[in-house]
Nucleic acid binder design. Structure first.
Length: 126
DNA sequence: ACCCTGACTTGGC
DNA sequence: GGCCAAGCCAGGG
């Protein structure tokens, strides 16, 4: 579709950034992880990694969302003393699906990073 | 419309 | 490897 695309396709029921982010996270397979920036990029905004974190914070409680499969680009589980952060739980959930997590909450990204195929991506974004 | 806030990332020491 | 400063941009007030 070389012509009517870009910004003028409001008739195509565009998903918001937030909807895309949630769809992508739900699609992460068991035993795999993605970084905030990676998710933002697939959602169409490569520099919006922080928003992914913000969305996760606000959607805490949605059990259908595999939030524990989202970590930062360094493979580090974000540790905060806040009510919304539970590094121990996240580590446990990751290990439950055979993802290695070091004592200092670091996951080897090179091994466990998920990269969706273009086909998978199409289905997610659709 | 403007201002502020960050579950982030990257580049430079 | 670690720490710091700057850039980023969607959401909410």
């Amino acid at each position: 579709m070389p012509e009517a695309d870009q910004d003028n396709n409001s008739h195509l029921a565009m998903k918001t950034f937030k909807e895309l982010v949630l769809a992508i996270i739900k699609a992460i397979p068991r035993g795999k992880v993605m970084s905030y920036g990676q998710i933002a990029a697939y959602a169409g905004s490569p520099r919006a990694a922080r928003q992914v974190g913000q969305i996760l914070r606000n959607t805490d409680g949605d059990s259908k969302l595999p939030w524990w499969r989202v970590i930062n680009s360094q493979g580090v589980i974000t540790i905060k003393g806040n009510w919304y952060s539970n590094a121990e739980l996240q580590k446990k959930l990751l290990e439950r699906e055979h993802i290695k997590v070091s004592q200092d909450f670091i996951v080897p990204m090179a091994t466990f990073r998920w990269t969706p195929s273009s086909t998978q991506l199409e289905q997610i974004i659709a």
